[in-house]
Structure formats: structure tokens, C-alpha cells
Design a protein around this nucleic acid. Structure first.
Length: 368
DNA sequence: GAGCCGTGGTC
DNA sequence: TGACCAAGGCT
């Protein structure tokens, strides 16, 4: 798009397209209706780096458990983490709970109605603050997520690679926001990026902004935005120890509150290194002495910045040991098989437990 | 600023 | 099958 082109043309065309093609989503108000700030905030946190499809069942479940922000604030953190289990990026759930307490206890249950005010809540960054301010309060703020960045990079044919070009893209995007219907405009950008201006094979023939798109004019739309080089992902390996008592309950311990899978549960695990521990070495890593048996096969899981391979060791104990390690005691739980789906187990740990317990029927059911 | 932080779908 | 990607934020 020519930089002198009036932004009004973009918003007019995009909003007209949105009025005909807008998606129906659980957290989205019906046309002309006011959005509920609590629902908008909850959905925006869940949608960070997460697909609409994955969020759907979690959003409905959270809203059913905790209909108001005061309900969420009053819930124990462990319950919130258990409900979040499987959605990933667990710091989001901890910050969600923190922010709910702030809003419920310090703001009388009312969310701030400006981007600046929202930005002060834990877990709310520049994108989310703009999105909530626009969608819930109709403030003329930009919501520059990856969709909007892609649309803008193509509209203006910005060929410099991300993330270096991000400031320019965001500045261009802010210049497009209309004074009226800013919330619809923000959601229209996302719907356009999701349905038309896609990463691969964009449907430029159906795009309402085609005539204004500089990248399309140059035939380079699919190549934008350019991204920097990818980093290599190392592989870490280790042993997991799945213990069951005579009733079949599984021993789980709680991870530290900060860092990877913070505050979530796991079976006892050895350290993660380049190579698997040899059997004698693995037995030293076990939480206590028992008749450990190593299972055939490997559990693989991919995290954002490394891959994990786990060999599972299993044992059955007659009595629940009173102590595990001498150092760094951690919270211990024995969880019945039927309750495994109701506690804060991240997906990787569910994989390990599923691998170790070839039981009668599935241990975990997918949400929704 | 760059590294850390999950998971599931897609092609 | 593996690489890429998603309504990013925090430190």
C-alpha cells in the first residue's frame, strides 16, 4: 500500500468484509452487542501462541467453572493449573490467577478500561492490552498479533526480516486503526489473517484489500513477512520413575513454581542430559530402592527450545515410602488412576504415564 | 535483546 | 516425517 493512501480505505473495506465473513467464536459478542471484559481477557490469555481450535474447550470449561473474575480469583491455584493442563505455557495460568486476584480484590471486579491500565496486569503485554482495550472497550488501539503483522507486512511490502522489522510493522499497523469500531477492526485483521492472508498460499483472489496490497502488486505476498534464521533444538534424555502402590495409585511430585512446567505435577525424574543414563546410573536416580524394571521404548516430546526423550522405569511398592530424596523435599501426591485426568499433569507427563501403565482403557480423555 | 516457555495441527 | 506455526509475555 502507498503510505499516502488514506487508512480510511483499509478500515472501510476490511470492516465491510468482516460484517459478511466474521467467525462465530465462544468468546466473541454477537454483532452490535457489548463484549464482556472478563471473557475477552480470558480468551486473549488463552489464545497467546495457541490456536482457536485448541482454546475452544478450555474457554468453555473455565467459564463454566468460574463464571466471574471473582470466582476465578477465589479458586486455589492448583485447581486453575489442573484445568489449564494440556494448554501449555503454564506461566499464563499462574499469571491469569494473579491478575484475577488483582482485579477482584483491588479493582472491585472491574477490569481497567484502557490499554495502559490493562498492561499493568500480569500476563498482559502490548498485544493483549491493545486487544482487550479495543474489543471490550472500543478504544482505538491496535492489536498487533502475528496475523496483523503478516497482513501489514504484505500490505506495505515490508521486506526486512522479523524481528528487526517489528517496530516498523507495528507503527504501520497503528496507523490503520479507525476511530470507530476499533474492536471489530482488530478482530477483522485476525479473521483475515486466519482465513485469507494465510502464511502459505494466501487467497489473494478473495482478499478485500487486494487492490491496496503492495506485496500482491509485486507478486511477493506469500514470501512475507521474512523471518530470521531458526535456531537448532538440542535433544535431552533422561529416566522417569513411575511408581504404583498396591491399589494402583501413582506417585507424583510437584515441580518448582518457576521455570519449565512450573507448579505442575510429574512422576519422579532423573536429570536430563545428552545421553540416557546406564541402568546402574538410573537406579541411583530413582526416588528410593525398589524392584525397578525398565520398559522397552522411548517417550519423545518436543518443547519450544529442546526435545526430550524419556526411558520409563516402573515399580510397585507394598507400602508408600515415607521419604524419597534426602535433599530438596518436594510436595508428594499419590493419585488414583481415575483421578489422573483431574490433576495438573502437563502433556509430556501424561505421555510418560500412559507409556508406563498399559491399563484397561485410556487414562486421559481429551477436553471437549 | 535474546533466551525461555508447550502443545497440537498442517503440509 | 519433520519443520513450521499459532490472538506473546517475562526476564
Amino acid at each position: 500500500m502507498d503510505s499516502t493512501e488514506p487508512q480510511a480505505k483499509v478500515s472501510t473495506l476490511l470492516l465491510a468484509w468482516y460484517d459478511r465473513h466474521r467467525r462465530v467464536l465462544p468468546w466473541r459478542a454477537l454483532p452490535g452487542k457489548k463484549a464482556d471484559p472478563y471473557r475477552v481477557w480470558l480468551s486473549e490469555i488463552m489464545l497467546q501462541q495457541t490456536t482457536v481450535q485448541a482454546v475452544g474447550p478450555y474457554f468453555k470449561d473455565f467459564l463454566s467453572r468460574w463464571p466471574r473474575v471473582e470466582d476465578l480469583a477465589a479458586a486455589p491455584l492448583d485447581e486453575v493449573l489442573a484445568a489449564w493442563a494440556g494448554l501449555g505455557y503454564y506461566a499464563r495460568a499462574r499469571n491469569l490467577h494473579k491478575a484475577a486476584k488483582v482485579v477482584a480484590e483491588e479493582m472491585g471486579g472491574k477490569f481497567p478500561d484502557t490499554a495502559e491500565g490493562l498492561r499493568a496486569l500480569p500476563g498482559v503485554g502490548p498485544y493483549t492490552a491493545g486487544a482487550i482495550a479495543a474489543i471490550a472497550f472500543d478504544r482505538p488501539e491496535a492489536a498487533m498479533d502475528a496475523n496483523a503483522e503478516r497482513v501489514v507486512a504484505r500490505l506495505f511490502a515490508i521486506t526486512a526480516p522479523l524481528p528487526g522489522s517489528k517496530p516498523e510493522i507495528i507503527a504501520r499497523g497503528k496507523g490503520l486503526v479507525p476511530q470507530n469500531r476499533a474492536g471489530d477492526f482488530a478482530q477483522a485483521m485476525m479473521d483475515l489473517g486466519s482465513a485469507i492472508c494465510t502464511v502459505k498460499r494466501p487467497a489473494c483472489g478473495n482478499c478485500p484489500l487486494r487492490a491496496l496490497c503492495a506485496a500482491e502488486a509485486q507478486g511477493i505476498a506469500e514470501n512475507l513477512p521474512v523471518k530470521g534464521p531458526k535456531t537448532v533444538r538440542p535433544i535431552k534424555r533422561g529416566a522417569a520413575f513411575v511408581v504404583r502402590d498396591r491399589k494402583g495409585a501413582v506417585l507424583l511430585i510437584k515441580r518448582p513454581e518457576k521455570g519449565l512446567l512450573g507448579g505442575m505435577l510429574e512422576p519422579p525424574l532423573g536429570p536430563w542430559t545428552e545421553k540416557f543414563p546406564k541402568p546402574a546410573e538410573a537406579l541411583k536416580q530413582a526416588p528410593f530402592e525398589a524392584d525397578w524394571k525398565k520398559l522397552p521404548g522411548i517417550v519423545r516430546h518436543v518443547f519450544t527450545h529442546f526435545e526430550l526423550e524419556i526411558e520409563a522405569w516402573v515399580a510397585e511398592v507394598k507400602a508408600r515410602p515415607s521419604s524419597l530424596w534426602k535433599d530438596a523435599p518436594r510436595e508428594i501426591l499419590w493419585v488414583d488412576v481415575e483421578r489422573l485426568g483431574a490433576v495438573a499433569l502437563p502433556t509430556v507427563m501424561k505421555k510418560i504415564i500412559t507409556h508406563a501403565i498399559e491399563d484397561e482403557g485410556p487414562l486421559f480423555r481429551k477436553k471437549g
